[in-house]
Computed example of a mutant assay.
Amino acid sequence: MYARMPDVAGTGWIAVMPIKRLELAKTRLRGAIPGIEHDRLVLAMVRDTLTAVRSCPVVRRALVVTDEPAMVAAAADLGAERVPDQPDAGLNAAFARGAATAAGSPVVALTGDLPALRPHELAAALTALGRHPRGYVPDATGTGTSMLAAAAGVDLDPRFGPGSAAAHEASGAVRLDGDWPSLRQDVDTVADLAAATALGLGRYTAELVAVAQYGGGRPR
């Protein structure tokens, strides 16, 4: 587990992460780790993402938009705040709901499928935004979005979904490029999970992979 780094003067990003009901999330990953229930894998990836976010020196608060009971408990355990979701409202509505709660602060939108995320890479990407009002980081494929950020007082205007990188650029968000492989590597497929594993998974997802590979019983 990453150690919490000290706060940096002049920073105060609010991270927003919407989380679906576990049984509905990441359906293409079903069976990705033999012998491990799908819900446990999804929750582990969210926990690793949130742990890294909470350890980022420029993130002041983390808001999890969810109505998933297991995630409500996990968020509290990891020092995040829960924002109630609206059933069937969709991903972008959940991002907007969380951003509205953080009004007056700069907001960074992230999905909960970045189990290899390194806090310093997230900090570097947010720093790279500079004076731009909005910016995004494309995912490893170049077509999706792994991070969207908006300065204080600027509408987040999330456009996640198929082709979101182009949609965010068309909306005026600046593309942010840097050496941030762990920030770009979201996990939707078995191949994505293998790529994240090669980068180095966070504690919770790594434990599940280790159990599947080497046995040793159910991780705590």
Results as ranks from 00 to 15, higher is better:
A195W: 00
L122H: 04
P119K: 05
A74C: 07
A149P: 10
L129T: 07
P158S: 08
R30P: 00
R97E: 06
V53A: 14
Y136K: 01
Q213R: 15
H168D: 10
R118N: 03
A124Q: 04
T66A: 05
L126E: 00
F160I: 03
A100F: 08
L50G: 12
V58M: 01
R203T: 13
S55A: 15
A212I: 01
T127M: 00
L122G: 04
M147F: 05
V53T: 15
E37N: 11
V46W: 05
A210L: 11
Q185G: 10
L114K: 06
P219I: 13
L29K: 04
A15C: 12
R159N: 02
L43V: 04
L183M: 11
V64F: 08
A206R: 15
D192R: 06
T189N: 07
Y204Q: 08
Q185K: 05
P18F: 04
Y214G: 13
A102M: 09
T111H: 10
T49S: 14
A44N: 09
Q185I: 04
H168C: 12
L126Y: 03
T141P: 00
P181C: 14
P219L: 08
F160P: 01
A198L: 11
A166P: 01
R218F: 01
H120R: 11
A151M: 02
T101D: 10
T127P: 00
A152H: 03
A9C: 02
L29C: 06
A116S: 15
Q213L: 15
D188N: 09
G178F: 03
F160M: 13
G216R: 13
L78I: 09
T205A: 14
G163W: 06
A198N: 13
P133L: 03
V72R: 14
G178Y: 09
C56L: 03
A165M: 08
P158H: 05
A74P: 06
V46Q: 05
T49A: 10
G90W: 02
G144M: 05
R40A: 14
A44L: 00
D155I: 01
L114T: 02
P69Q: 02
W13Y: 09
T205M: 06
R131V: 02
R21C: 00
P162Y: 01
G79M: 09
A152S: 13
A94H: 15
T205L: 00
P138V: 02
G112M: 04
D88S: 13
P133K: 03
A191G: 09
